[in-house]
Design a binder for these strands. Structure first.
Lengths: 132, 132
DNA sequence: AACTTTCGTTAGCCGTCGCTTACTGTGGCG
DNA sequence: CGCCACAGTAAGCGACGGCTAACGAAAGTT
């Protein structure tokens, strides 16, 4: 069973409404903003932190040596870019990486890489000796 | 035949020395610099331009409405990040996207996405109703 | 109601970024 | 050699980004 199949199954077993909620809550990913967001090392660390686990802002901030304010601003940037989702629980705000957004970013690079590989393979076929 | 198999074949038909040259010439990709490089829209356009085709600096600059100088600086940033390779032919400098670097970037996001998907799949298995 | 916890927001500082304008460098050609 | 086409480099400017410090806001707790 491939990873993609697992995802397909996961979506399949959720109800239609739940799926609507899911795509609804997630503020559509902005590719430009997303790439700018992950260009920052600390934001990348935050993203890896909440890729597999949901965490409150405080717990996230503990992992860094900058102010909680700074982390809060990073979270704001990530949220605006659609890279993370926010869920409230009392005074806490729980964050997690948006699987859909990560998938879109992944696809963007996949396509770019694909173009590059195509060219490379073409050159090899035309003249193996010229292959870089 | 999958894409990965094509790549494997392409590498296989090149000689060992050629492969050494290939990895030698390419200034090891810097993930941090690479992500900062593709955060800029114009640099991303440049990258897509030379993903499947090798182009001289002048031809690249023609596609934009900024100065050739600006494009030259963008190319410098991309090269420093290891995202592109440079080959000289007379006074011309031919650029192309580094397939290896694009692959590494792709892998980085692949892993991040993978972590996120794992979590999502786990939640569904544990309690489908709780799936976001 | 007063206080605490958890967290976001604002103002302002300083460093970095992308751009233009000028200048410099280099290879080919008469 | 002198010149031209093709490029990178340097200086300097306006804009933007990330940080801290101080403040604001909301949900529990006593």
């Amino acid at each position: 069973m491939t990873l993609t199949q697992v995802v397909a199954y996961a979506y399949a077993v959720t109800t239609e409404n739940e799926q609507l909620d899911r795509t609804d809550v997630m503020g559509e990913m902005d590719l430009d903003a997303a790439l700018r967001a992950i260009a920052e090392p600390r934001r990348r660390e935050i993203l890896t932190l909440i890729a597999a686990t949901e965490l409150p802002a405080g717990k996230i901030a503990e992992h860094f040596e900058v102010t909680r304010s700074a982390v809060s601003q990073h979270l704001h940037v990530l949220k605006d870019a659609g890279m993370i989702t926010e869920r409230r629980d009392g005074t806490r705000r729980l964050y997690r990486a948006s699987e859909a957004a990560l998938g879109e970013l992944r696809m963007f690079l996949e396509e770019l890489w694909h173009d590059s590989v195509d060219r490379f393979a073409r050159e090899v076929v035309e003249d193996p000796k010229e292959a870089p």
